[in-house]
């Protein structure tokens, strides 16, 4: 059994939204989410836009102050104080390689900034060496250290973002849609690099993406989110062939298969209707308005998260 690295307990993140002159309604972006990530492991987090997957990642690094619940890193609570030293251990790679790099800084400065903040290098030469090392590690040409971010393509920029994240030698990285903005051929390069770095540096990832193929490829365990809650979680292979929650079923069946023969044979489960407004979530189970199996019980009570064997957890009354 490997060591528990990050533990998220009943995390809640509400944002106050003005809905009238004097009225604010809480938007429940993340509502009672719990999970564990072991050292060197990848947990995939999938869901549609607005389901709260990015908020989970950001709350974990204390970029937002959680409304409720807590995040523990090696047993230490992550709060405004502890994040100052814990951010040497927990890092993030963002979705958009264009807006997440400062256009006025050279690559060397971008990668060097975390080194300076945490006083990692004793002198200038060591800093220079370290930057070179990091650039080589992520497959960038070290001669390009004095260039600016706009001189690079999307894939190379994402490499710069990754070099910046691993500069402080972290043990956990939140990858928030880190390959979504890239073309397939470049995406495959970056995915391979994430895996290589994991093997070499023993990194653990929270891999957030909306593309199920990518998440499945990256992670051993997957959690599926809908409207701020995790509805199902389990081993990747198990989930790929045996989805229990009706939302997971339709989500998996909706993913286009890049194989003409297989996609001619399969049947999609088409969901009725649209995603409900997060400000006016239906009571009970929030999926019931689009669910084929919804009963009165679903409206009355939110379903508990129960173990269906082999670490496969589902929150549904009827399945």
């Amino acid at each position: 059994m490997s060591e528990v690295l990050v533990e998220v307990k009943n995390l809640k993140q509400y944002f106050p939204i003005k809905t009238g002159l004097f009225k604010t309604t809480p938007l429940k972006a993340v509502d009672d989410v719990s999970f564990v990530i072991n050292a060197g492991e990848t947990l995939g987090l999938v869901g549609e836009s607005g389901c709260g997957k990015t908020t989970v990642g950001r709350s974990m690094l204390h970029l937002y102050k959680p409304t409720g619940g807590e995040v523990l890193f090696r047993g230490e609570k992550v709060d405004a104080q502890s994040i100052k030293h814990l951010c040497r251990e927990m890092q993030m790679v963002f979705q958009d390689p264009y807006s997440s790099l400062n256009p006025r800084m050279t690559v060397a400065d971008i990668i060097g900034e975390p080194l300076d903040i945490h006083h990692i290098c004793a002198d200038k030469n060591e800093r220079k060496e370290k930057i070179k090392q990091l650039m080589t590690l992520v497959g960038l040409n070290t001669e390009h250290a004095r260039r600016y971010a706009h001189e690079f393509s999307g894939g190379q920029r994402q490499r710069i973002g990754i070099a910046r994240a691993i500069a402080v030698n972290p043990s956990f990285i939140v990858c928030d849609e880190s390959v979504s903005a890239l073309d397939v051929s470049i995406q495959a390069q970056i995915i391979n690099m994430f895996k290589e770095l994991q093997e070499r540096l023993g990194l653990a990832y929270l891999f957030i993406a909306h593309d199920i193929h990518v998440v499945n490829h990256m992670s051993r365990r997957v959690a599926v989110m809908y409207m701020g809650k995790i509805v199902e979680t389990g081993q990747t292979a198990e989930l790929a062939k045996n989805q229990i929650h009706p939302y997971t079923q339709s989500l998996y069946s909706a993913v286009p298969i890049p194989d003409p023969k297989m996609s001619r044979q399969r049947r999609r489960i088409i969901l009725e209707g649209d995603v409900p407004s997060p400000l006016k979530l239906p009571g009970g189970c929030s999926f019931r308005t689009r669910c084929r199996f919804a009963t009165d019980r679903c409206a009355a009570e939110a379903p508990p998260f129960t173990d269906r064997g082999g670490g496969h957890f589902v929150a549904c009354w009827n399945k």
Binding site: V184, A188, I191, H213, V214, N216, H217, T236, A240, P258
Partner: peptide, 11 residues
């Protein structure tokens, strides 16, 4: 292009 597509089968 076809080799670049990730999937669970190629985990």
């Amino acid at each position: 292009l076809l080799h670049s597509i990730p999937s669970a089968a190629k985990l």
